[in-house]
């Protein structure tokens, strides 16, 4: 440890100087509030709607969900950080906020470059064929048309949706949920990323696909500066991440080395 410090000759101030680590993601007291519609309730007539528009009041069937309630941390280059916590603790929301896909209501999130979210949530058009969805998804990630045309067969091959006949040319509504998830992951994983955010991506698909996707994530990690992994499978967090953040109802419960945090989390989960 001593070689990291250099002692000043000045007698009055003797300060340790730490070799500076480069931050890639800085989250400063972030609050995220979702607005959800509870579905059709009372007062949905056009007249009531017009009155609300004029008065600029919000509809009665909208509820606000305070998903992240003031989270602060700093992630550095070369780190792989696991995010754990029970369902609804705000993990996925936090990840989307880091990706810049959900705006913060208070606080700020600073990032280096453009973080990419690798998830299985990319909404595609269910009425279109798998192949067209691949094209559309790749274009939406900002790829050039020639690259898209070149990579489409690879992506379909990787997803394995053609193992039981020519599914790539069938509309996505005919797919099983596993197939659709595999295709979405394959599209998202086709691009290289600076800061990589992975949301439960490894949990989809059968054994063969999981093996291929773990391999792919390892490759992507090597190219990325910082990796975030959201997972309920503690083993995959233990395998990939040296640091873990434990979120509970929108707040950081613990932030530290993976082993310590997971041990505390397991004790908490078992004690419940």
């Amino acid at each position: 440890m001593d070689d990291r410090y250099e002692t000043s000759n000045d007698v009055t101030v003797t300060l340790p100087r730490v070799v500076e680590r480069i931050p890639t993601v800085v989250v400063d007291d972030a609050h995220v509030i979702y607005r959800v519609h509870k579905g059709a309730g009372g007062g949905s007539t056009p007249v009531a709607a017009l009155r609300r528009l004029v008065k600029r009041s919000s509809a009665p069937n909208i509820q606000e969900v305070h998903a992240v309630k003031g989270v602060s941390f700093t992630a550095y280059r070369g780190e792989a950080i696991g995010l754990i916590g029970s369902n609804g603790s705000g993990k996925s929301t936090l990840l989307r906020t880091i990706a810049g896909l959900l705006p913060v209501n208070r606080g700020a999130v600073y990032t280096q470059g453009q973080p990419s979210l690798l998830g299985v949530n990319a909404a595609l058009l269910n009425d279109l064929s798998g192949e067209r969805n691949v094209t559309l998804g790749c274009l939406a990630m900002g790829m050039q048309p020639d690259d898209v045309a070149r990579m489409t067969p690879e992506i379909i091959e990787f997803s394995g949706i053609n193992q039981r006949g020519d599914f790539a040319s069938l509309p996505m509504r005919t797919y099983s949920s596993g197939m659709a998830a595999r295709l979405r992951f394959s599209i998202a994983a086709a691009k290289k990323h600076d800061v990589l955010l992975i949301d439960e991506a490894l949990a989809t698909g059968d054994k063969g696909f999981r093996k291929r996707s773990e391999q792919r994530v390892r490759e992507l990690r090597e190219g990325a500066g910082t990796v975030f992994l959201v997972s309920h499978q503690l083993s995959s967090v233990r395998d990939t991440c040296e640091r873990t953040i434990w979120l509970e109802s929108g707040l950081i419960r613990m932030d530290g080395p993976t082993d310590e945090v997971i041990r505390a989390y397991e004790a908490f989960a078992n004690g419940k």
């Binding site: 480069i22 931050p23 890639t24 993601v25 800085v26 989250v27 400063d28 007291d29 602060s72 700093t74 906020t97 880091i98 990706a99 810049g100 896909l101 959900l102 705006p103 700020a108 999130v109 600073y110 990032t111 280096q112 973080p115």
Partner: peptide, 14 residues
């Protein structure tokens, strides 16, 4: 946090 971010040239996400 904000100063740290500014020092390393990080941008506000989104």
């Amino acid at each position: 946090q904000a100063q740290l971010a500014a020092r390393h040239g990080l941008r506000v996400a989104g």
